[in-house]
């Protein structure tokens, strides 16, 4: 270099406010899947909550004089063989199935995720032990295990929760463990450790939020699985005890009249499909929303 180069005064400090604003952060309502899922699930929750107000009929009280009626102004979808209004039972069924579907995810989600995080983070013999147990549980199909457990524990909502929790924690453990093993080698996690932070802080503040999204998204699909499980149990006559309105047992009740009163068996099935779709959309939307690029 033969020539001297003028250095402008502002060149050394470089203290410009230079945040990249180019990648505008999109607000949540532009996320189509999320909005669609929220609408569907929101509607279902609404009818579940307000079922007692929305229909004048009782879901359990039999009225044999009006048994097996066709759809009419009084009974939009007709009545079943005990004279109960189908619509009423559908709405009350939403209460049961949605409640079990969502609640049954919580225990396995929390327990499985924590166990997986600990196993992945600390490794060693603890990891080996946990993963062997997980392998054992994974060897059996989900529904078969749940049915067997409910059969042993006896029917009723409590045993359904127990059975599902006992079987489905393994998936969360496996997912979170894998994510933690990758995340703990990331520079920012190593850096956090090197700054003298405790294991608990590193694990729950720095690793946790970054690995949990996978688990949450899986949880959404798990809700669908669990609803299917409850419905299947109901259909097999194992789940919720009979007079209670529940989609599975409604399908069971309705199937003997499938040729004459087909709405009885198909409507609960349709609701299962709609619920699954709503939950899946919600899951897709969440997975997009939870990626760090999108957050505000």
């Amino acid at each position: 270099m033969t020539r001297t180069i003028p250095v402008p005064a502002n060149n050394r400090g470089l203290r410009r406010s230079a945040k990249k604003r180019s990648r505008a952060l999109k607000p949540w309502y532009t996320n189509t899947s999320l909005v669609a899922g929220m609408i569907v699930i929101g509607l279902l929750i609404f009818v579940a909550v307000f079922a007692p107000i929305l229909t004048p009929y009782d879901p359990i009280q039999q009225d044999l004089r009006h048994a097996l009626q066709d759809p009419s102004a009084a009974h939009w979808f007709g009545t079943d063989k005990y004279g109960r209004d189908i619509l009423t039972r559908l709405l009350w069924g939403t209460r049961v199935d949605l409640r079990i579907g969502f609640l049954s995810v919580i225990i396995p989600f929390v327990f499985g995720s924590i166990l997986g995080a600990l196993a992945g983070y600390f490794g060693g013999w603890f990891d080996t032990l946990v993963m062997r147990i997980v392998d054992v549980f994974f060897a059996f199909p989900f529904l078969v295990m749940v049915i067997v457990l409910v059969f042993i524990l006896g029917s009723g909502e409590a045993s359904i929760y127990l059975a599902i929790a006992a079987v489905s924690w393994v998936a969360y453990t496996k997912i979170v463990r894998g994510e933690v093993i990758v995340a703990k080698e990331l520079d920012y996690v190593v850096g956090a450790r090197l700054s003298g932070m405790s294991h608990a802080r590193v694990l729950f503040r720095h690793i946790g939020p970054n690995v949990l999204s996978q688990s949450i998204i899986y949880g959404m699909s798990d809700i669908v699985m669990n609803i299917m499980g409850v419905v299947t149990l109901g259909y097999l006559g194992l789940g919720i005890a009979p007079p209670t309105a529940e989609w599975g047992s409604m399908i069971l009740d309705g199937q003997e009249f499938i040729t004459s009163h087909w709405l009885q068996a198909t409507l609960p099935g349709l609701l299962v499909v709609v619920t699954s779709l709503g939950v899946s959309w919600l899951g897709d939307g969440l997975s997009e929303q939870l990626s760090p690029e999108r957050r505000k």
Partner: peptide, 8 residues
């Protein structure tokens, strides 16, 4: 020789 960065 001094290194002169390009700002921005």
């Amino acid at each position: 020789r001094e290194l002169i960065p390009i700002p921005g």
